[in-house]
Design a protein around this nucleic acid. Structure first.
Length: 282
DNA sequence: GTCCGCAGAGAGAGAAACAA
DNA sequence: TTGTTTCTCTCTCTGCGGAC
């Protein structure tokens, strides 16, 4: 396969293959790229468009209680429960935050995908982008647009949102582990709580609480390489105690926090841009 | 079209108990 | 001591009718 490093969007990309540095995660406020162990998750439910990509073979996926499907690439819409198993230990998972994109303008396989996807060209592009990334010296994308360019062929068009809702989104995403209530947001938006909740759902496509829960669970990804105990990490991530932490994380990722951290020990983490939570223990 | 308020249903948060 | 499970209560979601 011919790999073109020009225009890949990678900062300082060059091709030194190194099998020991394969497990990695790149994350910013709008996108996540995870390349690592899948484990044995039960039902999971992410708040963004989720793309699973097998590295060589295939995986099996079951979306919203439907039939199991065998495929190399699959897509799960935001807030849809699904299960996944793979014959390979490693898997690639891309996450596109739903509120950051104009759904109508998404590539067809993302927009309409629900489980296995038959999109050979998209599969080849994503595998090539992944290959470039795995060979790169500095695995950071300069921007969300550069990430989109690499994996989807072009920057994904952003969604135009109501300014009041956008302000709330910015507030939550800039500090996902801070607790902000619907009432506070409604006051800030100069709306009643009822009206705010309706408007939020209409604009973003997801309920306020679901979005807040997802953002908090998502912020866990910034901590997965830390070696502190889970209680400290739960508090840092904005959970009142390890009870909620364990419960919420299992609902989102289908794995216990313990197994997530165990599987992330050798993971190289590349975080950038807004949304990186404040680190530091209580 | 935008906004408000009500009410029933359901999910999330908090407390306690249990297991390793 | 740490992490997980279970149970109960509170808060949020959502559909609806109505006012402006």
């Amino acid at each position: 396969m011919q790999i073109d490093f020009q225009g890949s969007g990678l900062q300082g990309a060059r091709p030194p293959p190194d099998a020991d540095r394969q497990r990695m995660m790149w994350i910013n406020a709008d996108r996540v790229l995870y390349l690592g162990l899948l484990g044995e998750p039960t039902v999971r439910c992410f708040g963004g468009f989720s793309v699973y990509l097998s590295l060589r073979g295939t995986h099996r996926i079951c979306v919203d209680g439907g039939d199991w499907q065998d495929c190399a690439v699959s897509v799960v819409p935001p807030y849809v429960r699904h299960r996944i198993v793979s014959g390979e230990r490693m898997i690639c998972n891309l996450l596109v935050e739903a509120e950051t994109v104009d759904v109508a303008a998404l590539p067809a396989h993302l927009r309409a995908g629900r489980g296995a996807v038959d999109a050979p060209a998209a599969l080849q592009r994503m595998r090539e982008a992944l290959d470039i990334l795995r060979r790169a010296d500095n695995r950071r994308y300069a921007s969300t647009a550069a990430f989109d360019e690499a994996f989807f062929g072009a920057p994904l068009r952003t969604r135009a949102l109501d300014a009041r809702v956008q302000a709330v989104l910015d507030r939550i995403k800039s500090d996902p582990n801070g607790h902000v209530s619907a009432q506070e947001c409604a006051v800030a938006a100069h709306l009643s709580v009822s009206r705010f909740l309706h408007l939020f759902k209409a604009e973003t496509g997801s309920p306020f609480r679901s979005f807040r829960t997802w953002q908090r669970a998502r912020s866990l990804l910034y901590y997965v390489t830390q070696s502190s105990n889970l209680t400290d990490i739960a508090l840092d991530a904005g959970y009142p105690d390890s009870t909620h932490f364990s419960h919420s994380i299992r609902q989102v990722y289908g794995l216990t926090p313990k197994s997530i951290f165990a599987g992330s020990r050798k993971l190289a983490l590349y975080a950038s841009g807004a949304g990186v939570p404040r680190l530091g223990y209580h």
